[in-house]
C-alpha cells in the first residue's frame, strides 16, 4: 500500500525534516507513527498525501508514484486516501451531513451516490442521529468522528491520521481509537501519527518510531517506548 525508499525531505528554510526514510506498509495494516513533536511524523504523512514534496527518494501510495506526481494529479491521489487531523478541519457553517457530503460534492459525485454513501459512513461512526447538527454543537469526539466520516466517504483504501486524539479527553480518545480499529478491520489501511502513549500501548500494533527525522525502531507489536512491557526483540 505504502512504500518509501531512501526518502528525504528538506524544507526550503534548510531544515532536514526527514532523512533517508525506508518504510513498507502492507495493505490492511494498522501502523502507529510515534515520536516527539518535531521529529517528522506529520512531515511523513504530508509526503504521503502530497502536501509536501520529497527532496529525494521514491514514494509510492496505492500504486501511485507520489514523488513524481504532477500537480494536476494531486486531486486524484487525494481521492484514494482519507486524512484526519488533530483540529478536525470541519466547516463550521455546515452541518455534519453537509461536511461529509462536501467531500463527495467537490469530486463531482452524483446526488444519488451522495444520498446513499453519507448515511452509510455516518452510521459507521455512530453519528446518524446528529447529522443535522453543526460542529460547534458537538463534542470534540463527535467532531473528530465527523471528520473521519468525511475522510471515509469516498471509500479510500488508506486512512492517514495526524494526531487524531490530540485534542480529546481520554474517554473520547478511546472512542476514536476503537473506531479507527473498526475501520481497519473492514480492510482499510490505517496510519496514525501520535504521541499518545496510552493509545499505542493499549493497541499493541505495529509501531514505527521517528527520532530527528529518521526511523529508529519498527516493531510488529510494539509499545510507545521501546522495550516497555513484554520482552521486546531489538531489531535493526
Amino acid at each position: 500500500m505504502i512504500s518509501l525508499r531512501a526518502v528525504s525531505l528538506v524544507y526550503p528554510n534548510g531544515v532536514r525534516a526527514l532523512d533517508n526514510i525506508n518504510l513498507e506498509i502492507a495493505k490492511g495494516d494498522f501502523v502507529f507513527l510515534v515520536g516527539d513533536s518535531g521529529t517528522g511524523k506529520s512531515s511523513l504523512l504530508r509526503l504521503l498525501y502530497r502536501e509536501a514534496k520529497s527532496t529525494a527518494g521514491e514514494i509510492s501510495v496505492d500504486g501511485i508514484r507520489v514523488d513524481r506526481l504532477r500537480r494536476n494529479r494531486i486531486a486524484a491521489l487525494r481521492r484514494h486516501l482519507g486524512v484526519v487531523f488533530q483540529d478536525f478541519k470541519l466547516l463550521t457553517d455546515k452541518t455534519v451531513w453537509e461536511n461529509v457530503a462536501f467531500a463527495m460534492q467537490v469530486t463531482g459525485a452524483h446526488t444519488r451516490d451522495i444520498m446513499r454513501q453519507v448515511p452509510r459512513v455516518l452510521d459507521l461512526v455512530g453519528l446518524s442521529h446528529k447529522s443535522r447538527m453543526y460542529p460547534n454543537e458537538l463534542s470534540g469526539g463527535e467532531q473528530q468522528r465527523t471528520a473521519i466520516a468525511r475522510a471515509l466517504v469516498n471509500n479510500p483504501k488508506l486512512l492517514l491520521c495526524d494526531e487524531p486524539t490530540g485534542n480529546l479527553d481520554p474517554a473520547n480518545t478511546s472512542e476514536i481509537t476503537a473506531l479507527l480499529l473498526r475501520i481497519n478491520l473492514k480492510g482499510t489501511t490505517v496510519v496514525v501519527a501520535t504521541h499518545n502513549q496510552a493509545v499505542v500501548d493499549r493497541m499493541r500494533r505495529r509501531v514505527v518510531r521517528l527520532d530527528d527525522g529518521r526511523i529508529t525502531t519498527d516493531e510488529e507489536r510494539g509499545y510507545y517506548y521501546l522495550g516497555l512491557g513484554e520482552s521486546q526483540v531489538l531489531s535493526g
Binding site: N72, A76, R79, L91, F102, A103, V106, T107, R150
Partner: peptide, 17 residues
C-alpha cells in the same frame, strides 16, 4: 481559505476550486 484547504484535502481539482 479553510474551505479551499478542505476542498484540496478531499481531492477537489483546482479547476473546481
Amino acid at each position: 481559505r479553510r474551505e479551499i484547504a478542505i476542498m484540496q484535502l478531499v481531492g477537489a481539482t483546482s479547476t473546481y476550486i
